[in-house]
Amino acid sequence: MIRVLLVEDSATMRHHLRESLAADPELEVVGEATDGGAAVDLVGRLRPDVVTMDMMLPTMSGLVATEHIMAEHPTPILVVSSADRQELFSTYNALAAGAVDVLEKPRGDASDADWGRRLCSAVRLVSRIRVITHPRARLDGRDRPSVPPAAPIDDGTPAQVVAVGASTGGPGALTELLRALPPGFGPPVLCVQHIAASEPFAVAFSDWLAGQTGRDVAYARHGTLLRSLGGRVVLAPPDRHLAVRDGVLRLSDGPPRYSCRPSVDVLFESVAAEYGAGGTGVLLTGMGRDGADGLLRMRARGAVTFAQDESSCVVYGMPREAALIGAAAYVLPPARIAARVAELQFAGGRATGGRR
């Protein structure tokens, strides 16, 4: 049985959650909390396998409760939240603090027909994730990661574009990576972040990431010249593949890769073909293997490639696959990856001396 703790202040919504989960014989609700403080206490006493977490709670918010849980009793947390803008930003803060996925609350329209099935599926998925302890109070910028001194580099092709892929746990890792890049970093950063949520959640991600990092962040537009994007962070839009061809951003509705659209592999393969040794590839935390083959393609074309290390990953899935097939030349935490990536711009060379 997968033991679930429900955290929700609305009696109507708690009833809906309880009934939906009861339809799956392998899911068991072991407790309910109506505020964040009670949720933290119950997690410590009941040790559930999964917590479903509302964001807007009395006394202690869902975000603060998530921070406490991930610092004291790390447990897979599924945020169940509405698409209200204030709640969206709290949701992304919770994902950066260690929550592993998000499911939008029922909308009251035809899309609700299979909501219960999607809830059960999401609970099953997050229950399989090995979560790690997250320090609290990291999201306001007071405790930004320290960047170690740069290691020696060799002369080589300067970085022209940085391609980044992330999935589960990605908002936090991507925030850490971008915060650690120096203010004058010039190459554009193209990102694929898997977000298993509705379009309102996904669209708000760019605003949230810009606020967290102080960088110019926007969703990609088809036909944009890459040379016009210096220093900007460009995200793949919801449900669209992002690629580069002939120096231009291309968006497409092509078939999913490893059930993913946007796909990290699609981005990495296009950067490998377009820029060769002028590309830099970074694969961050996530479940599955999307991005591993594309990162290997980049490395084969002369690009410098990085994968996030296991100790800093929420889910050591995608980076692990990349390391196993030799796609990642360097395996490091996000802040140290950022330091090496910065070397490639400012010194115009290829990094050396990283842990392989």
Results as ranks from 00 to 15, higher is better:
Ala173Pro: 08
Asp114Phe: 11
Pro148Ile: 05
Val126Trp: 01
Arg107Tyr: 00
Asp207Pro: 00
Asp114Trp: 05
Gly172Ser: 07
Val244Phe: 06
Pro183Thr: 09
Val147Ala: 05
Thr175Asp: 14
Arg107Ile: 07
Leu209His: 05
Asp109Leu: 13
Ala163Phe: 03
Ala204Asn: 08
Pro135Lys: 04
Pro182Glu: 12
Leu209Thr: 03
Val189Trp: 08
Leu249Ile: 14
Arg215Gln: 12
Pro200Gln: 12
Pro158Ile: 10
Leu249Glu: 03
Pro171Cys: 13
Ile129Arg: 05
Arg179Gln: 15
Gly141Thr: 06
Leu181Arg: 08
His241Ile: 08
Pro238Asn: 13
Gly169Gln: 05
Leu226Phe: 05
Ala204Leu: 00
Ala113Cys: 00
Thr168Tyr: 00
Val147Asn: 07
Gly186His: 10
Val203Glu: 14
Val233Phe: 08
Ala236Glu: 07
Ala243Met: 12
Ala243Pro: 00
Val248Pro: 01
Ala173Asp: 01
Gln193Met: 11
Phe205Leu: 12
Asp109Val: 09
Gly116Val: 04
Gln212Gly: 05
Arg118Leu: 02
Phe201Thr: 07
Phe185Asp: 04
Arg138His: 12
Arg124Asn: 10
Ala151Pro: 14
Val131Gly: 01
His241Lys: 06
Asp114Leu: 14
Arg117Ala: 15
Asp143Glu: 13
Pro149Tyr: 13
Val147Cys: 09
Thr157Leu: 01
Pro188Arg: 00
Ser167Gln: 09
Pro158Glu: 14
Arg232Cys: 06
Arg142Lys: 15
Arg215Thr: 09
Arg221Asn: 03
Pro182Asn: 07
Tyr219Arg: 08
Leu178Val: 11
Ser146Gly: 09
Val162Arg: 06
Leu178Glu: 10
Ala202Gly: 12
Ser167Cys: 08
His241Asp: 04
Val248His: 08
Leu209Met: 09
Phe185Met: 04
Pro145Phe: 04
Pro149Arg: 11
Phe205Pro: 10
Asp246Lys: 13
Pro188Ala: 04
Thr175Ile: 03
Ala150Gly: 15
Trp208His: 06
Cys191Phe: 00
Trp115Ser: 02
Val102Ser: 02
Val162Ser: 03
Cys120Leu: 03
Arg117Leu: 14
Ala150Ser: 15
Arg232Glu: 13
Pro171Gln: 11
Ile195Leu: 15
Val234Asp: 00
Arg240Asn: 05
Leu190Met: 12
Phe205Arg: 10
Ala137Pro: 01
Leu235Val: 10
Pro238Leu: 14
Leu174His: 07
Pro237Tyr: 11
Ser111Cys: 02
Leu225Ile: 04
Arg128Ser: 15
His222Glu: 09
Gly170Asn: 11
Asp207His: 07
Leu190Gln: 09
Gly156Pro: 08
Val147Met: 06
Ala220Phe: 06
Arg117Gln: 15
Ala173Tyr: 02
Gly156Glu: 07
Leu103Ala: 02
Val126Ala: 02
Val234Arg: 01
Gln212Glu: 15
Gln160Met: 00
Val248Gln: 14
Gly169Val: 03
Arg124Ile: 09
Asp155Ser: 14
